[in-house]
Amino acid sequence: MERDLTETISFDKRFFLALAACYLVISINFGIRYTYGLLAVEMMNDMNFSNQDIGLMVSCFILLFAFMGFVTGPLIDRKGAKMTILMIFPLIGVGSILIGIMAPLVIYGILFSIIAGIGASGGWAPVIIWSQKICSKRRGLIVGIMESGTKLFPFLIALAIPQLVPMIGWRGVWLLLGLIALFSVFLVSISPEPKVEDNKPRKKTYLGDMAGILRSRITWLIGISYASSAFATMIHVTFYKAYLNRELMMSLDFSTLLYGLMNLVGFIGSLGLSALSDRFGRRPLIIACNTLLVASLLGFLFSRSTLGLILSTILAGIDLGAKWPLYATFIKDLYDWEVAGLATAFLTLFSGAGSTLAPYVSGLLADLYNSYRVSYALSVYAGATATALIGVVKR
């Protein structure tokens, strides 16, 4: 029987430590992912990397993050979320530190991004499952709280980078993030994980559950929508700063601050809309988020005023903050706890596919056309596709 541990009088205060550990893990995980975009210009200038090179590094990071779902999903269901994090997540810290000390060769950036990407796979699905076990009656809210860290931390990094880079350089930023990631692993090691059982009796084997997930039309519609939305979003977050600086000729500091604004708005959106989904449902809010994404991308394509770019940034931030927890809780609505890890990891494969292709393809197009506008136009089509597909889902 499911029970919300936060609603019992005997609630173990150690679970607050578990939630704090989960929050730091998912925050530093996505902080490292978005740092590629925040430091793209500095890395390109210092090591003579191209847009395609940076895009390839990001793609390798996300590719391993996605395909490790084949490992993390079964591990979560069999060994638990905590053990999965302890086994895999330290690699993101190691990879980040290696990026900070690498020689100016693309092959090193690719290799170390692969290591970091493997580690990153231990910092999303396990956190989502662990936190939902603690607060099973308010899953939309708790996942929204966890996801708010994926926006708050990049926002803080964006604020800090203009001060940190002159002091410790872009390499020092990577080293610092790697050390924070390793510290989060220590917090996980001393945090408890609850045992949660379903009301429903088990009728299938694990392989039978996997087959059921793969045969579900709804799962595929949600997954392909997620992939399309992730594709559109990753084009934006990877080259947002470079687009503003290199094409719209805005200063690096101003471009970084706008990037931070997007994540600050995302922090608010992840809390507000995710909590509302417990009452109004995930599907209508996912449709709203993807619609806002398309509107924001159109704004970046056609607006040339500072005010227009700020408004487009706010719209993008709302989508960026709320979309990921909404998709995550939507897929969990369909499946039991015994296969929650597998179902969540399966969804991650879709988002990973879109997120992996986006940086490389958009970087290649930017180098080919000497402009980011073609990449942004492609992201508009992807966002519209994501909206249409989730609209088809009836449940």
Rank of each mutant, 00 (worst) to 15 (best):
A160R: 01
Y360E: 03
V294K: 00
F239L: 11
K241V: 12
M249P: 00
V25R: 00
V265P: 01
V294Q: 03
R3Y: 12
E338S: 15
A388D: 10
K82M: 11
I286K: 13
T233Y: 13
R395W: 03
W220A: 04
D209G: 15
T385H: 07
L63M: 14
K195P: 02
T313H: 06
P192I: 02
C22T: 08
L182Y: 11
L292E: 11
L152W: 04
V392A: 11
G149T: 02
V165F: 02
P90W: 03
A295L: 15
T150D: 09
L182S: 04
L311F: 08
V380W: 01
V173W: 04
K13M: 08
Y108Q: 09
L293M: 14
A20M: 13
Y381I: 15
L326E: 13
G73I: 04
L156P: 01
G260R: 03
Y34H: 08
Y360P: 08
D46A: 15
T205H: 11
A316Y: 05
A20D: 10
V127E: 09
I107F: 11
Y206W: 10
I107Y: 12
L273K: 06
G55R: 05
R373M: 06
L111C: 10
G299I: 06
V25S: 05
L179N: 06
E42L: 07
I118S: 04
L214C: 08
G144R: 01
V185N: 05
A40R: 06
S113H: 03
V25T: 09
A120C: 13
T205Y: 10
L292D: 10
M83I: 11
G55A: 07
A120E: 07
Y206L: 15
G122W: 06
D319F: 15
L347R: 05
I107G: 08
L105V: 12
Y226Q: 02
L91E: 07
V106T: 14
D333Q: 05
T313G: 05
S312H: 04
G117L: 06
G299E: 08
G321K: 10
S351L: 14
L298P: 00
L187C: 01
S270F: 02
R139M: 10
F49I: 03
D53G: 02
D12T: 04
T356W: 03
L252I: 07
A340I: 05
G117A: 00
F267G: 01
L38S: 01
S10T: 14
V71A: 14
M43K: 06
L244E: 02
P126V: 09
A322L: 08
V165E: 14
T344M: 09
T35K: 03
W130I: 12
G212M: 06
A158V: 05
Y36S: 00
G122R: 02
M167V: 13
Y36E: 02
E193K: 03
P194M: 04
D77K: 03
P359Q: 05
F11D: 11
R202M: 14
I180H: 04
I268A: 14
I99L: 15
F89Y: 15
Y108L: 04
